[in-house]
Lab assay of single mutants.
Amino acid sequence: MGFKLLSKLLVYLTASIMAIASPLAFSVDSSGEYPTVSEIPVGEVRLYQIADGVWSHIATQSFDGAVYPSNGLIVRDGDELLLIDTAWGAKNTAALLAEIEKQIGLPVTRAVSTHFHDDRVGGVDVLRAAGVATYASPSTRRLAEVEGNEIPTHSLEGLSSSGDAVRFGPVELFYPGAAHSTDNLIVYVPSASVLYGGCAIYELSRTSAGNVADADLAEWPTSIERIQQHYPEAQFVIPGHGLPGGLDLLKHTTNVVKAHTNRSVVE
């Protein structure tokens, strides 16, 4: 069995187990497998329904001669939608809004960016022009300005110390501490036991640490421990890039980060 097929099978099995364990909360999309990078042309966006009122959005972007996937989250909030992270750029984010209108038909009224990198804030200006209120932590807003990236308009308070959590509509926002970046936030959907790890969490097929220019490698494993301790009931975990899975993604990420750190020390 090929690795790609095995990865998709694991996603399907995880979703099936969740649907059985929580039949009222989960209505997993039966329309197909989780979209992969090879299936999404740059400039297009796919939506994948995880649970009743919960979707991931998947886009792709060219970077350094390669094409990478990027995940975000959409959560229903009454007759409105909360968006977590842009679709990595203005063109993708405009396509995301169009796809949401086509498939869901509810307005996106608020959006949260989970850290300051372009795959999370690139497209904020498109959201703002569409009347979406954009939010991020003060740290993310400051770092985005320093980096020359787009800056969300509103500040999220109460997320300055490791372990801080605040309720934001249908989700809980959690600051686990520094990891992929010093400002990275985690998003949890309690009604569906869905954990969105953003770039602080890796997919299972990833074996290298990737972009760690703004990471705190020493603190990252401790931050992941905080996530595990705060959300032990999480059933569906979405990484910032690639295929979702279960809580095993947290341990896998820790292993990859520690291996990278150990290699760096040896070198």
Rank of each mutant, 00 (worst) to 15 (best):
G246Y: 08
Y68F: 09
L96K: 00
P176W: 00
E267S: 14
V54D: 02
E147Q: 11
I40W: 12
N149L: 13
N262Y: 10
A215I: 05
D52T: 09
I224W: 01
R120T: 04
P138W: 15
K251N: 05
L5A: 07
R142V: 10
I224D: 01
R167T: 06
L106K: 11
L9E: 07
V124H: 09
I104N: 02
G2D: 15
V265R: 10
Q228A: 15
E172G: 03
E233A: 12
V171K: 00
F63E: 07
S162G: 10
V166W: 09
G198R: 02
N71Q: 07
D164L: 08
G32S: 08
N255S: 10
P107D: 12
L97M: 05
L73H: 03
P23V: 13
A133K: 15
I201E: 01
V257D: 00
S191A: 06
S155E: 13
G2A: 09
H57K: 00
L82D: 03
A90S: 14
L173K: 00
I50D: 02
A66K: 11
T36G: 11
A111N: 15
S181A: 09
G2H: 15
D85S: 00
P41I: 11
A144W: 03
S70K: 02
G32Q: 05
A200M: 06
G89C: 01
P244V: 06
K258Q: 12
V194H: 00
S264P: 15
N262V: 07
W55A: 01
R76M: 07
E145C: 13
R226V: 14
S223G: 08
I74G: 02
K258V: 10
P170D: 06
A144S: 12
E225D: 15
V132M: 08
V187Q: 00
M1Q: 04
A94R: 12
V171F: 02
S160K: 13
A259R: 10
T140N: 03
N71L: 02
A90H: 11
V194K: 01
Y231N: 04
S22T: 15
Y12K: 13
G148R: 11
V212S: 12
S7Y: 15
S30P: 07
Y196A: 13
G163R: 10
G242A: 03
Y175V: 04
P170H: 14
V256G: 01
A19F: 15
E157S: 11
L143H: 13
S208G: 10
I224N: 09
L24G: 08
D77S: 13
N149C: 15
V37A: 09
F116W: 15
V42H: 14
I227K: 03
W88P: 00
D77Y: 13
L156S: 02
L250M: 05
T114P: 01
I17E: 05
L5G: 06
D52I: 05
H241E: 00
L106I: 11
V266D: 07
G53P: 06
P138M: 07
F236W: 13
A218M: 05
I84D: 00
L6S: 06
S113A: 15
V189F: 07
R141Q: 08
A66S: 08
Y48M: 08
Y48T: 09
N71I: 03
P176H: 02
Y202W: 06
I100Q: 02
N71T: 12
G72P: 02
L204G: 09
H154T: 14
D214P: 05
N255F: 12
Y196I: 02
P23L: 10
P239W: 01
G245D: 06
K258D: 13
R110P: 04
L173R: 01
P35D: 11
V189S: 04
Y68L: 13
A15Q: 15
S113F: 10
K258P: 04
V126H: 07
S193W: 08
V265K: 09
L81D: 00
S7R: 08
